[in-house]
Amino acid sequence: MGRPIVITSGKGGVGKTTTAANLGTALALLGQKVVVVDADIGLRNLDVVMGLESRVVFTSMDVIEGKCDLNKALIRDKRAENLYILAAAQSRNKSDVQPEQMARLVKELEQQFDFVLIDCPAGIEQGFDNAVAGAQEAIVVVTPEVSSIRDADRVIGLLQAKGLTEPRYILNRYSPRLVEQGEMLDRSDVQEILAIPLLGIIPEDQTIIASTNRGKPLVLEASTPAGAAYVRIARRLLGEEIPIPEFREETGWSRFFRMLFGRG
C-alpha cells in the first residue's frame, strides 16, 4: 500500500507545485514508484512545470466521471523510471469534484504506487477539501514571510482537525543572506509558531525559476543547492536520518571550489 501525501500551504505561490514536481522526481530517482496528482482543477500547472503538457489527453476528471480508465489517464515521465503524473482538468471547476470521489481515486492509486503526491490548490475551500480527502500524510510548504506562516498555521489547524498524521513542513525560499541582514525571519521564528516537525529547508535558488520554465525539475539537473535539498527531503521521507544543514550564503570562492571539485 502506497503513501498518499498532500502538499499544501494555504497561500499561493509559495512552492507547492515546485515541491510536488521535485520531490516526486527525487523519490522516483531513488527507486520508488511515484504518481504526482494535480488537484488544482481549473488552474492546472503541474504538467507544465514537469514539461509534460503536450502529453495530456485525459485528466483525473475523466477518470472520476468514468470516461476513461485510470491507466489511460496516467502520464509516464520518461526521464525517470516509475514516475507518473495525473493531470487536472483545465476547463472545469473545483466544485465539479466531491471529496469522496477524490478519496476513491487516491485509494485506487495507492494500490499501484509507493507514493501518491497530491499537489493542492491555494486556499482553504473546496479545492483544499478535495486535495486532502484521500491523504494520510501532509507536507506544508511555507516561506519565511508573515503572511505565508499565518496561512500555513491555519492549514495545520485544519489538517489536525481532519485527523491526518502530524503534518511536517518544508521551509522554502530561505535566504541566509537576508536572515543575516535581519530582513528575513529566521528558521527558529518559523519553528516557534508552527511547532510541528521540519522536513527540510529549500534555499532561495534562481535556477528553480529557469527549470520551471524549461519544464525540467531541478533534481534532474546537475547538483544545485535546491536540487540537493529536495533529494535530502526525499530520503527523509524514506526514513533516513539526514540532518538539516545550516545554510550559508555561497561566496564566490565556495562556488568556485564546488564547481572545481564537484561538491556541494
Binding site: 499565518r150 496561512d151 498555521d153 491555519r154 495545520i156 489547524g157
Partner: peptide, 8 residues
Amino acid sequence: RHTLRAGA
C-alpha cells in the same frame, strides 16, 4: 488544552 492556530 491545545494551541490555538490562526483562524481559530
